[in-house]
């Protein structure tokens, strides 16, 4: 019962509750020299198709570990995660992963970077090329297809990274503090764009961050995680209407939600230390 939804979800964005990711008793224990370390205590969580879920918490709360297990990049120590009813045992091409760094290949142009997954899949053809150009257009890089990464700003590099992921049309987008290295203004712009694009495409997003207001502003649900041991301490529904606008952050309701998250974060830390 680590994760519990505190009130019935309004399904404001999620398509009438069709589950896409089901996490059951998922946990991770690392064996290190001094003995086993619980990185993540058993988590139960169901994420619906098209839902935007933020995971917020301080370092060491297991949020990245959880994301890596859902990505199939890290084996679970206990429990399981399922994608469309199938247990996740290895990475899936239906799941896109975005990292804190853009991870662009400096010897490839923007378009070549975006088409790299298609090369790996063996699906690079005129159709994927068209798709890549369309996605680059959508993230505002239509004029930069032939530029090299070094010619782009940090924000633009992350746009390329986003375009690379969107081009192979994943159902689920896993984001591990994707804009954490960007400045405040760029990050805000990127967040708004991310919401617009993923909502339009009906992509389910799992968004890891340590920024509370960002987590609340973007999500349909915020999963609050606390460290030592890493665990889910609470889940809060966010029923602000979409599309989200910056003005919503000035409302009393937003402030209340932030305090609610802070409350749960504080409790978790008091209990464990």
């Amino acid at each position: 019962m680590a994760a519990q939804t505190q009130k019935p979800a309004p399904l404001e964005r999620a398509a009438q509750g069709v589950p896409i990711i089901e996490i059951e008793g998922l946990g991770k224990t690392f064996a290190i020299d001094t003995g086993p370390v619980v990185a993540l205590e058993s988590v139960d969580l169901t994420i619906r198709k098209g839902e935007f879920v933020s995971f917020v918490g301080p370092s060491g709360c297991g949020k990245s570990t959880l994301l890596n297990m859902v990505a199939g990049l890290l084996p679970a120590s206990g429990g399981q995660a399922m994608l469309n009813g199938d247990v996740i045992e290895e990475p899936s091409r239906k799941v896109g992963f975005m990292f804190q760094t853009a991870v662009l290949l400096p010897w490839r142009t923007v378009e070549q970077n975006v088409l790299m997954p298609a090369e790996v899949f063996g699906t690079k053809n005129e159709a994927t090329r068209q798709k890549a150009r369309k996605v680059l257009e959508a993230v505002g890089l239509g004029d930069f297809t032939d530029a090299y990464p070094r010619q782009l700003s940090g924000g633009m590099q992350q746009r390329v990274s986003l375009a690379r992921t969107l081009t192979y049309e994943p159902d689920v987008l896993l984001m591990d503090e994707p804009f954490g290295a960007l400045d405040e203004f760029t990050r805000e712009a990127m967040n708004l764009e991310l919401m617009r694009i993923t909502q339009a495409a009906g992509i389910t997003v799992l968004f890891v961050t340590h920024n509370i207001s960002e987590a609340v502003f973007m999500a349909d649900r915020v999963v609050i995680m606390t460290p030592r041991p890493g665990k889910v301490s609470g889940v809060i529904d966010i029923d602000f209407p979409r599309p989200r606008v910056i003005e919503q952050m000035q409302s009393q309701k937003f402030t209340d939600l932030i305090f609610q998250v802070r409350g749960i974060l504080g409790h978790g830390q008091d209990n464990s230390s």
Binding site: G72, E90, P91, R93, V103, L105, E119, F121
Partner: peptide
């Protein structure tokens, strides 16, 4: 080769040879 680049290649199920040719060797 940066860990994130390896993770990226794993997340798209690249074969070891693909990762070597497309990422590791040029890097």
């Amino acid at each position: 080769v940066p860990e994130d680049a390896r993770r990226l290649m794993r997340s798209i199920k690249a074969t070891p040879l693909q990762t070597f040719r497309k990422v590791s060797l040029p890097h």
